[in-house]
Amino acid sequence: MESKKIESTSEVLFSIKDLHKSFGNHEVLGGIDLDIHNGDQIAIIGPSGCGKSTFLRCINCMEDPTSGSIIFEGVDIADTSIDINVHRENIGMVFQQFNLFNNKTVIENIMLAPVYVRTKKLRRSSKSGDAPKLTKADIKKEERERAMALLRRIGLEDKADVYPSTLSGGQKQRVAIVRALAMNPKVILFDEPTSALDPEMVGEVLDLMKELAKEGMTMVIVTHEMGFAREVADRILFIDEGKIKEQGTPEDVFDHPKDPRLQEFLSKVL
């Protein structure tokens, strides 16, 4: 009943209903309901193997849910007959292992998807008869400038033309974050963005994420960094055994946990 208190006046971005996911006979998610509003910063915590990553990956259908619905901007994206790609353009994702494209330079990593998507739209609009104002070269030039501005923002403009293999872990993850930003997503999903980093590099990545949170970016973050979750998130979800066992403000969840499994979990990690 405490969690009922959580309300938001802003528009609902995602409405997830009764989400189930099984791998074979193994049910990983056993019915998850969640509304994500514009501007929410949600942290997901829970013991290893409880299904946090699986849940996050269901949100953009990297894993197809077994059942349930995910309404994103009025469309059920769990429905496999829709074109998921146009929706993914608006849902950024940041991975534990960074996953920068090894065969592309840093700036190409950032530009690739925006250039592709805009060029595709350009082709469509020129087919439908509207006179296209831009050429592909214009789009590339614009996106290169935008990518450069993003790199400047994270202080890596001098790394624009190097390959990712030459970057440190923290630099890679910050590039991965601005690569997601370059698409102007409505939300960014983070799956343990700092777990693969050396301790001295965790700070730079968390700082960038804090900045995004302050700017009001909608974020869903799977994390083991409890301090960070408390500081940045306005809502914490505790997932265990494939269900949301408890949710609430950081104060509720960290200071007054009610679920015994959550209490046990917190006693181990705090």
Partner: peptide
């Protein structure tokens, strides 16, 4: 992860 990153960005 390379494929996943591409797909997550909306690339077919």
């Amino acid at each position: 992860g390379q494929t996943e990153a591409g797909r997550a960005l909306g690339l077919p």
